[in-house]
Design a protein around this nucleic acid. Structure first.
Length: 447
RNA sequence: GACCCUAUGGUCUAGCGGUUAGGACAUCUCCCUUUCACGGAGAUAGCCCGGGUUCGAUUCCCGGUAGGGUCGCCA
């Protein structure tokens, strides 16, 4: 039988980066085995669930490209699904839970207690066979020793996580439960429940958790805990995917940057690590740079225009050829698309803000006549292309008896406002003679 | 408090009963480029501690320590 796996998030806030990694591992396993990846929304906690959180989950998975074979088509709990095991929102499956609880009740495997329903938990240690961790024998803790039974339906009639999770895994024919290690101890409860329903429990694979860079546990408030923050920061989903799959899984042969097809081909449960991993933002940034350099022209253009728009710069006001030429000088020089407006905003702004420290160094009296001479040299240039610009600048420097660098830095600052940026000669060519002369003129006022 | 999981440079990891313990990110140096980035060359840095088993343990076993998880009418 082909594996059936699921990602079953609870829409109570944002999509945690660890949750995204869990989704990824499930998805990879399904794609590797030719199995089925199911998305199920565990919205049984009416008080904490929100529509917004549902949308965040769906959008996050879509952004990453983790398409589900079964599950909701929209964020509407009562909306359309795909797959034969729907609905895929637990809030829409109440009747099942009710029926199952009554069955347990009638068989004496559960009982009412202060208006709630409790499951009669076995007193014996339970063996949890885990594909990652191995066999784990889980005895009762001292607290459970006093009362091993646990609530499966609240006094208000709402079913509890342990119950619904097991029932749905059972009814959706889930074969492999791949989830965070935080569920390992509780799996004893789930196995007991499967036993009570007379069904063999699925295979379990508990994957290690993701910690902060400093080894502490990642909580909501930590930077980078939310998947959405990577989308907002201008990361490429393929970079995030590639980085994430390396956290707690290893292809074992030092391969790191891998096309998705190769990851899918090589991903499997036995290579999942047993220990937690610290999230290394710097390494993710490196991975991002690797992918950013490879983005094709059309997509690069689209992402760049979007990034500029987010920063309030409307590139549509400029000729397409100008925008493309400008973008061309930036390709491969930055990592996050959110950096682009800072890096190359000068192409699209009339008013430049000079970086203070650099301006102090470059806009000094002795540079004024030099820059004036260069301005004149540029003014006489025809054609106004990178090669000619470079030649003119070097010739001017020679005539002035200074190194090219003496001219390069003030010129860059005058044209872009920034000490860093694209190749100077190319950027000047793209800007065009008129703009460049105007900008040098403006800069000369600052001396 | 009890129970469970884990332990290779700062981080992600490979590895093995005998290895000069390998790779990547980060850091530092140099080269390339008179910006930045990329690229190239090099450097620093690691087997948690203590017992066993063994001719020999980073590797196997036990204990400790540390980190993480669970013990909810949260999921």
């Amino acid at each position: 039988m082909k594996p059936r796996v699921r990602f079953a998030p609870s829409p109570t806030g944002y999509l945690h980066i660890g949750g995204a990694r869990t989704a990824l591992f499930n998805w990879l396993y399904a794609r590797h085995t030719g199995g089925t990846f199911i998305l199920r929304i565990e919205d049984t906690d009416a008080a904490r669930n929100s529509q917004e959180a549902v949308d965040v989950i769906l959008n996050g998975l879509r952004w990453l490209g983790l398409d589900w074979d079964e599950g909701p088509l929209t964020g509407d709990a009562t909306g359309l699904n795909k797959g034969d095991c729907g609905p895929y929102f637990q809030s829409q499956r109440k009747a099942n839970y009710q029926r199952r609880v009554e069955a347990l009740l009638s068989r004496g495997l559960a009982y009412e207690h202060e208006g709630a329903v409790k499951f009669k938990m076995t007193r014996e240690p339970i063996l949890i066979p885990d594909l990652v961790v191995g066999d784990v024998l889980r005895p009762l803790t001292d607290r459970e020793e006093q009362d091993p039974d646990f609530v499966i339906m609240r006094s208000d009639g709402q079913p509890v996580f342990h119950l619904v999770n097991v029932i749905d895994d059972l009814e959706m024919n889930i074969t492999h439960v791949i989830r965070g290690e935080d569920h390992l101890s509780n799996t004893a409860k789930h196995i007991a429940l499967f036993n009570a329903f007379g069904v063999k429990a699925p295979h379990y694979a508990h994957i290690p958790l993701i910690l902060n860079g400093d080894g502490s546990k990642m909580s909501k408030r930590d930077k980078g805990a939310s998947l959405t923050s990577y989308l907002d920061d201008g990361f490429l989903p393929e970079a995030v995917i590639n980085y994430l799959c390396l956290l707690g899984w290893s292809p074992k042969d030092n391969r790191e940057k891998m096309p998705l097809a190769e990851i899918i081909e090589r991903f499997d449960l036995p290579q999942i690590l047993r220990h937690n991993a610290c999230f290394d933002y710097e390494k993710l940034l490196w991975m991002q740079g690797e992918y950013a350099r490879e983005v094709g022209d059309d997509r690069f253009y689209e992402l760049a225009v979007h990034a500029f728009a987010k920063a309030g710069i409307d590139t549509n006001k400029f000729p397409l050829s100008y925008v493309k030429a400008a973008l061309d000088t930036c390709k491969g020089k930055f990592k996050l698309f959110n950096e682009l407006p800072t890096y190359a905003g000068f192409y699209f702004r009339d008013e430049l803000v000079y970086e203070a420290e650099a301006a102090q160094k470059a806009f000094v009296p002795e540079n004024k006549p030099r820059l004036e001479k260069l301005r004149d040299a540029f003014a006489a240039l025809n054609p106004f292309d990178a090669a000619a610009i470079e030649a003119a600048l070097k010739e001017t420097a020679k005539q002035l008896g200074v190194k090219a660098g003496v001219l390069i830095h003030p010129t860059r600052l005058a044209c872009t406002g920034n000490p860093h940026g694209p190749s100077l000669y190319h950027l000047i060519e793209v800007l065009g003679k008129e703009k460049v002369l105007t900008r040098i003129e403006q800069a000369l006022q600052r001396f």
